[in-house]
Amino acid sequence: MFRKEIKEQLLMFKNEAKAQAERACALAASPKEAELKDCVHRYVCAKFFLSPETDPERLLYNLACDSIEQAINMKIPIAKESETATTCGAAGSAAVKVALLMVALRKDFHVDIPSEKLAFIKNTNELGHIVFESMRP
């Protein structure tokens, strides 16, 4: 893959994640769970450079592993991100990636979900549900 193509693909993923977050925020006034789950799933897939066809029941940790594989395949420079996100507990890249995703989701979806709740979310289905719960008036 040429550098230009990689850039275009990255931009596409970035725009898709942004679009899904905006779509979810637009639903905030009267959120519907199925639609929000779809937004969250597509958002996570875009953030992880994965196809939206990915199984929404697949463990987030495994999605993060897939994402790292994908980034390596696409020759995406991921070193910088992991350099600033390592913890002194020597956590692996996948666990850190999941945590970074949660931080980004809170910001992009304008939701305030406690870390303790987000920590044990297993998949995008559960994540969509908890986002729905927090948006519900």
Partner: peptide, 25 residues
């Protein structure tokens, strides 16, 4: 050994949760 968001309270908790899920799997 971190910067940015990873220094914020709660971040380690989310990392720990992901480690738990991944390790149990």
């Amino acid at each position: 050994m971190a910067g940015g968001d990873a220094l914020q309270p709660g971040f380690d908790t989310m990392v720990n949760g992901a480690i738990f899920n991944g390790t149990m799997e």
